[in-house]
Design a protein around this nucleic acid. Structure first.
Lengths: 113, 113
DNA sequence: GCCTTGTGCAACCGTTAGGTTGCATGATCG
DNA sequence: CGATCATGCAACCTAACGGTTGCACAAGGC
């Protein structure tokens, strides 16, 4: 009955995913990592008004949501974007839109007969 | 230069939008409102483990992000989904994906020559 | 071996989020 | 008018968030 349960959620749930996206600083990080080149924490922190440790925390939040992945090279950690995870979020939003459209169609037909 | 600033953001910024989506309870509300039928606060609260006032707060957060709109009928407020706002979020995600793909293409060409 | 550089870890702090309870208010139905 | 039902408003509480500072540590460069 409940359509809510009919909406399949990616592993781990979408809420943490959206939560990770719901912060200006984190969006900025995603934007920079989206330029393609993997960056170290120090590189991400330099030029930012924020502390390196704060950046680290944000990266961990993003990593927890699967939005970002780190790979160490020597003594430094290179972080890069995990684009597929963005698709999960998009798919979820698309599904709700579809559910909405279909519901409106049903209501429309119900009115017309 | 910075590609981050090249990503157009919907009015009000996307961060609040994603923030509003980043909560399990709020996602459930969106799911129920996505069924098409406008619902009152009391209707949304009944059957929920949560207090009516908590629901009200969540609805206000969603309204603040433009994800939901209320229309009063007599003494009750009917809430309904604002689907277009979901498209804003989707467009933003799509843009980052596109930025990523293009960046990878450039890097690829750089390697090949 | 030393000094530097990139991180991690832990404690701490102010603010906000999510939730509750209690009471006031406004529209509706007898 | 009086009882009732759907809300709003405000205070309060706890836990988490976003940020900082300080120090320890491991990997390179010289």
């Amino acid at each position: 009955m409940s359509l809510a349960s009919a909406v399949p959620r990616p592993a781990g749930g979408v809420a943490p995913l959206f939560f990770a996206l719901g912060d200006e600083t984190r969006l900025a990080l995603i934007g920079r990592l989206g330029e393609g080149k993997p960056l170290s924490i120090a590189e991400l922190a330099s030029g930012s008004a924020i502390t390196r440790q704060a950046i680290t925390k944000h990266l961990n939040v993003l990593a927890g949501a699967g939005l970002v992945r780190d790979r160490r090279r020597g003594r430094e950690h290179l972080w890069e974007l995990e684009v597929r995870r963005l698709d999960d979020a998009r798919a979820y939003l698309a599904q709700i839109s579809r559910q909405w459209d279909e519901a409106l169609d049903r209501l429309q037909q119900f009115v017309e007969r």
